[in-house]
Amino acid sequence: MVIESRASATSPALVLRRWCADDLDALLAAYRDPVLRRWTRVPATTAAEGRRWLDRVRDDWDDGSRYSFAVIEDGVDGPRLVANVVLKGAAPDRPAAEVGYWTASWARGRGIAPRAVTMLSRWAFDRFEALERLDLLHQVDNVASCRVAQKSGYLFQEVLPARPPFPLDGHRHTLTAP
């Protein structure tokens, strides 16, 4: 499964594709970033943790519970991992699902997350006929995720009360089917 965007005068092409075992080193490099680790729940800081992360992502695809994509940018030095986007809880008969993402430190501030979230959202609405709504959730102190949601066309809906493993209240942003 591959989803591609075209390059523009200001943005290189992005490719969303399934994660594979060859992505281990790039995954570990991304997880060296303490900011990324702050907002993620499943660690991938050692080779063993990274392999478990990749195995889980593969298993989730196979059972249809989650669809995680490696986001690859076609850069000057060749393709490079820049982010991860994920669709959670989608099923043929469910009207709502959730999207999530993270961006590698070397790719932040360049509009990659909104582009990747938008690509994933379009794919989700095309793939799941019954899907009417996508939610993007984040903690209230994650201002960058609020901006990504807005830039991706997700509208703020409500403040959600804190619940484990999240210590602070959150925001729910929603995108409805076109």
Rank of each mutant, 00 (worst) to 15 (best):
L134D: 03
T45S: 08
V148Q: 01
G109D: 03
K151R: 14
V15Y: 04
V85S: 00
L137G: 07
W102A: 09
A21C: 10
N142F: 12
A9S: 13
R37N: 06
R80K: 11
A124S: 15
R58D: 10
R147S: 14
E132N: 14
D22A: 15
W19V: 07
C20R: 15
A83F: 02
W106M: 05
A107K: 10
S5L: 11
G78F: 01
S121R: 09
D62E: 14
V86M: 09
W102Y: 12
A144T: 12
G78H: 01
R94K: 15
R56W: 13
D33S: 03
A144Y: 07
L87D: 03
A107I: 06
A130P: 12
A130M: 10
A47E: 14
V76T: 15
D60P: 05
V35W: 08
A96L: 11
A26W: 06
S121E: 05
R66C: 14
A9F: 09
A83S: 09
G75F: 08
G50K: 00
W39A: 02
D22I: 08
M119A: 14
L137A: 11
C20E: 15
W106T: 13
P114R: 00
A124N: 12
D135N: 14
W102N: 04
A91V: 08
A48Q: 09
D62F: 06
V86Q: 10
G100H: 01
K151H: 06
A30N: 01
D59R: 14
V42M: 11
F125D: 04
P92F: 10
V71D: 05
A107P: 04
G75K: 00
I72P: 03
L87T: 02
R41W: 09
A97K: 03
L27G: 00
W53A: 01
A44S: 09
S65G: 07
L81Q: 09
T103H: 02
Y101Q: 02
D63H: 06
R58E: 13
A149T: 02
L14C: 10
D33L: 02
D22G: 15
A96G: 09
R108L: 09
D60F: 07
Y67L: 14
V86Y: 13
F128Q: 03
F125M: 07
W123S: 06
A149V: 01
V76R: 10
E98S: 09
W19C: 04
T118F: 06
P92S: 10
P43K: 02
A13R: 15
E73Q: 06
G109A: 07
F69I: 00
A107T: 03
R94P: 02
A30F: 00
W123A: 11
K88V: 14
R133V: 09
L120A: 09
N84I: 08
Y101K: 13
Y101I: 12
N84A: 15
D55K: 06
R133F: 04
P34H: 00
R37W: 00
